[in-house]
Design a protein around this nucleic acid. Sequence first.
DNA 1: GCCAACGTTGGC
DNA 2: GCCAACGTTGGC
Length: 148
Amino acid sequence: MRRYWLMKCEPGAYTIEALERDRRTSWEGVRNYQARNFMRDDMKVGDAVLFYASNADPSGVTGLATVVRAGYAERGQAKPIWHMVDIGFVERFAGIVSLETLKATRGLEKMMVTQKGSRLSVQPATKSEYDIVVRLGRRLERAKTVRA
DNA sequence: GCCAACGTTGGC
DNA sequence: GCCAACGTTGGC
């Protein structure tokens, strides 16, 4: 059963553009146990990922990725505490589906990222939430195409 | 850059 | 195991 996720990253650290260039990357450096557990235990190859730019202008979903390697331990730990996954590039939106838009969209009221004080950097999402965000992202694409 | 909302640490 | 102090995240 394919699962759906949202992964946050500050643009200063990594972006969807960088992922498009690199094709894939390892999601190392997460230092939160809940997020770690999702990566170590639940994320499987083929799962869908919403790529979210945090602390950005504006913050929001900038594209799509997919899990290409399930949870494995970061190197250089005597006892493996921290784990990561690898994600691969899927799609870059023409713009940002901003947090403001997410909050204003019906069907995303319960999405974790729209909740106040939600800081978790790896979050589960539902298929319905994922589909809605993808539609919003591709609408940006169409709008751009129409203008061109 | 501010600061509220979290998460983690460590003394007890 | 409580909780105050501290550190971090991330919207604004």
